[in-house]
Nucleic acid binder design. Structure first.
Lengths: 135, 135
DNA sequence: CTGAATCCTTGTTGATACTG
DNA sequence: CAGTATCAACAAGGATTCAG
């Protein structure tokens, strides 16, 4: 199943030599598309924050998902996790240069969506309208 | 739960005026991160293809998922669906200018991943290694 | 050929409760 | 405070089957 993306990647100017790139691309792409990842990254864009603060700022996220997202991002080197040996415990998360870099890239997509949102919404209305207006 | 992304969007230079943008951003971002969307878009970058051809080219995709993905993309105006009244039936899918535009944007992310993949993989190894080397 | 409908398996998520 | 563990609910995905 790699061949498709591989060849298209090549067409897009991406060197097709490394087969594992395909998996990784999808992997990272999936992470970028993840509901909470975007929120975490954009929320941390201003500066380091601790767990609870993130939990408050990103309304709707459960401890479980936040913890999980944070760990994945830290694992990929997008975030740093700094635990202070205090009482009560304090842990701060911050974007790494790599994370900031991804943040910038994501911003491109965000801008694209913003630039085309009206068009997309209109397309959906037309599509849905055409579907239900036929019977 | 909009406030987080909203404010960060603002920080990123995106006008925060439209509240529905947040949902849409996540919606489109999720679609972009979708396993099959990327494959479909990149596969169609070369030119129009019919259903079966796509099914063949994108190995691993089920009819169900392909059909579903195609419909979503068509609904958003990213693809055109042209059915020819022939026997046997023939349907061709092609990128719209909007779809091509998104394709270009996605390519940015793909390039980012490609540019940083070694770093990410190494980060993961370090992270995983540090975790299992402690006991 | 295209694709919708069905069924069934698996993975993901949130709520809750508990630990260092 | 900062998580982890467990469980139940739900959604996503694939295989198969049928229809236009």
């Amino acid at each position: 199943m790699d061949s498709a993306l591989r060849s298209q990647l090549a067409a897009a100017g991406v060197t097709p030599e490394c087969a594992s790139t395909i998996e990784l691309v999808r992997d990272v792409l999936a992470r970028v598309g993840d509901k909470w990842t975007v929120l975490v990254i954009t929320t941390l864009a201003d500066g380091p924050l601790r767990f609870t603060t993130l939990h408050e700022r990103i309304a709707g996220v459960s401890q479980r998902m936040l913890s999980q997202t944070l760990r994945s991002l830290t694992r990929d080197g997008l975030l740093t996790r700094t635990a202070y040996a205090e009482v009560p415990p304090r842990v701060e998360y911050a974007l790494t240069p790599l994370g900031r870099s991804l943040s910038d890239t994501v911003t491109h997509v965000v801008r694209w969506v913003q630039a085309h949102q009206i068009e997309i919404v209109r397309n959906r209305e037309v599509f849905d309208g055409a579907g239900s207006a036929a019977p």
